[in-house]
Design a protein around this nucleic acid. Structure first.
Lengths: 204, 204
DNA sequence: GGTGCGATGTGCAGTAACTGCAATTTCTCG
DNA sequence: CGAGAAATTGCAGTTACTGCACATCGCACC
């Protein structure tokens, strides 16, 4: 099935109506049938365009790290691993080259609907896995002589988990109820900077 | 509905059969009807005992931090926040006072089934929220004079995210496919100890 | 101006998870 | 035994989602 431009148009129409309806009535009160009626397609068509109801609402974008940023990250001298990592994720695409108005509406819905917020968190898993790989690569390059590759890999996976947690924090904000309308990486980073020194451990 | 001992017995029977069936046939191949037939109850009864199919399989335990441990954490001098936190979560109940054999079977299923693994991760959210509160409490006690309560809260929430990420790592292990049969907090902690110094930042 | 072919949309029947309601069976205890 | 509570059940309905066959649409090519 080599999709043409028509397909994209219909997808767009469905998305738009889905977001509009959810914003008006809330996630649970909007059924797939309702979206179909509003966008003038059959239910079967709906599921030809989106695998799940959820996807129609939050979109099908997959957050990706920029290729160039990755190269820069890998080429760095390696003195400031954490800082370089934060720079890396700071350049993450905020979610696809869609209509910015649609994206704004989406974020408003996502941050206020637990089910959607959670699905957004799950998307971070792909980022997390990507990160784990590049981190492992960089750590291997700058590794001390006697280090086991398994250990390095474990450390990389753990670090990727930690960075993902940071991203979750920046998305979710401090108050579960009324979070920022958009992920605020800037202020999150400032919070992290303040937190880190407090973790300093005396015995090291 | 003041549940009596009979109720618990039936729950147990359903759980046991559910776990057995999933272990034999895999998560997707096991329907609620199948579990009902195997455990000799009607479907309606099934849903009287468990809100979702998933709950019947992974159990209804909610991981909690030990009260005493929390007190100890709060009473600590505060020099080693991170270490104390790790001690705190180390004492987490591994998931209810159930039949240990059942729990073992559960972990085997959970760690090999993405849908179940994910539901297990979601359970960590309650722990994470608990942690955020006690961390905030402790940070407030040991705060420097001029610190804003909002800042402290933000730092606490972020730190709770990071600890939760650590727990996720210890559950998931390094290889997504073949993780440890049980969360291995010990070795995870060792990995963290090795990782931390590598994050050391030169400019501070 | 057809005509054919691939892209797109639809109808229909079915499955699976879950819910509400009202009825019924099964204890338990006096 | 009999009353009342606990536990289970049947049934009908809703919602998300799938497979399959069929219809339609649009566009290139003759």
């Amino acid at each position: 099935m080599e999709r043409g431009p028509r397909h994209a148009m219909t997808s767009r129409r469905i998305e738009t109506e889905a977001v509009r309806l959810v914003r008006e009535r809330g996630y649970d009160a909007v059924t797939v049938d309702l979206i179909c009626e509003a966008s003038g397609v059959s239910q079967r068509t709906f599921f030809n365009h989106f695998p799940t109801k959820l996807d129609a609402i939050v979109g099908t974008h997959r957050p990706r790290v920029d290729e160039g940023q990755v190269r820069r990250f890998l080429a760095s001298t390696g003195d400031d691993l954490l800082g370089d990592l934060l720079d890396l994720v700071a350049g993450m695409a905020p979610g696809g080259a869609d209509d910015p108005e649609l994206m704004a509406a989406r974020w408003a819905i996502i941050t206020t609907t637990p089910a959607l917020l959670q699905s957004e968190m799950e998307r971070l898993l792909s980022v997390q896995r990507e990160l784990a790989e590049v981190i492992e690569l960089r750590m291997t390059r700058h590794a001390a002589p006697g280090e086991s590759p398994d250990d390095i890999r474990a450390e990389a996976v753990l670090l990727a988990h930690l960075v993902a947690a940071f991203l979750r924090f920046s998305i979710e904000g401090v108050e579960p109820g009324g979070p920022p309308a958009r992920p605020d990486l800037e202020s999150s980073r400032r919070t992290l900077e303040q937190l880190l020194p407090k973790l300093a451990r005396p015995r090291d």
